[in-house]
C-alpha cells in the first residue's frame, strides 16, 4: 500500500503568486491575498490529479480558469464594490451632520449662506466661497497624496479602500474646479425669490460638508475604517 503524498505550495511559491497577480494588474494587497489563496488552492488540487505537472504549468492552468481577461473583471468589480463601501462611510458621516448636536453647525452654515446671499452681493459671496474651498481642496489633495505615498512606502502594501480615501477627495476637488465657469449664472436677480435663495444656500451647505467630510474627516479616520474593512490589516 502506498502513501499519498500531497504536494503543497511553498513559501517562495506564495511570494511568486503575489508577484504574478501584480504582473496581471492586481495592485492592491487585499485582492492579491484573496487571489493568491485561490490560485494556491487550485494548484494543490491540480497536483492531486496531475502530480507530474510543474509549479509553473499548474499555476498557468489555474490562471486560465479566470478567462481571457484574467483578473481584470474581478479587479473592476472589486473597485465598484469598494466605491460603494466608501460612499456608505461618506453617508454615515454625513448623517451625523443632520442630527443633533452637529445639526446646529449645519444650520449655522446654512443661515450664514442665506443671509450673505440675500445682501445683493450673491455673485461675490459664491465666488469667494468657491475660491476658498478650491484653494483649500488643492492644498489638501497634495497633502493627502503625500500621506498616501508615505504610508505605501512604510508598509509596502497598497489597500484599495486606502487609495479611495486618500485620492477620491482629490477627484472631487477636480470636479469642483470644472464647475467654476457656471458660477456667473447666479446673478442677484436669480436669487431674488426666497425659494431660489433657500435652494442655493442648501446646495452650498451640502457642498461645504461634502468637502470637509471627504478631505478631512474620512482621511483622519482611515485607520479605523481600514481595520473595519480588512481584518488582515493589523495582522
Amino acid at each position: 500500500m502506498y502513501d499519498i503524498i500531497n504536494m503543497t505550495i511553498s513559501q517562495e511559491q506564495i511570494q511568486d503568486l503575489y508577484a504574478f497577480t501584480r504582473q496581471h494588474f492586481v495592485e492592491h494587497y487585499d485582492l492579491q491575498t484573496e487571489l493568491v489563496d485561490h490560485l494556491a488552492n487550485d494548484i494543490e488540487t491540480i497536483w492531486v490529479e496531475q502530480p507530474s505537472l510543474s509549479y509553473l504549468e499548474a499555476r498557468d492552468k489555474a490562471f486560465k480558469k479566470f478567462g481571457i481577461f484574467g483578473f481584470m473583471d474581478v479587479v473592476s468589480q472589486r473597485q465598484k464594490a469598494m466605491g460603494k463601501r466608501y460612499n456608505m462611510y461618506l453617508w454615515q458621516e454625513f448623517k451625523k451632520w443632520v442630527t443633533f448636536p452637529k445639526l446646529l453647525i449645519t444650520l449655522t452654515i446654512y443661515f450664514g449662506f442665506y443671509t450673505m446671499l440675500s445682501f445683493g452681493i450673491a455673485f461675490y459671496v459664491l465666488v469667494g466661497t468657491y475660491s476658498i474651498i478650491a484653494i483649500w481642496s488643492i492644498y489638501k489633495s497634495i497633502q493627502l497624496n503625500r500621506q498616501f505615498k508615505l504610508r505605501k512606502k512604510k508598509s509596502n502594501k497598497k489597500w484599495m479602500l486606502e487609495e479611495i480615501i486618500f485620492k477620491q477627495a482629490g477627484v472631487s476637488g477636480l470636479l469642483l474646479m470644472s464647475q467654476f465657469p457656471s458660477l456667473h449664472q447666479f446673478s442677484d436677480m436669480m436669487l431674488s425669490s426666497n425659494s431660489m435663495l433657500s435652494l442655493v444656500s442648501l446646495c452650498a451647505t451640502l457642498f461645504v460638508l461634502w468637502m470637509y467630510i471627504s478631505f478631512e474627516l474620512l482621511p483622519n479616520k482611515a485607520e479605523d475604517l481600514l481595520n473595519e474593512t480588512y481584518p488582515e490589516f493589523s495582522l
Binding site: 484573496e34 485561490h38 479566470f66 473583471d73 474581478v74 468589480q77 465598484k80 464594490a81 460603494k84
Partner: peptide, 16 residues
C-alpha cells in the same frame, strides 16, 4: 462556478 463570476458576486454581497 467560474472564478471570474464568483469573486465579483462575493465582493458585491460584502459591500451590501
Amino acid at each position: 462556478i467560474t472564478e471570474g463570476a464568483l469573486y465579483p458576486a462575493l465582493h458585491k454581497l460584502e459591500a451590501e
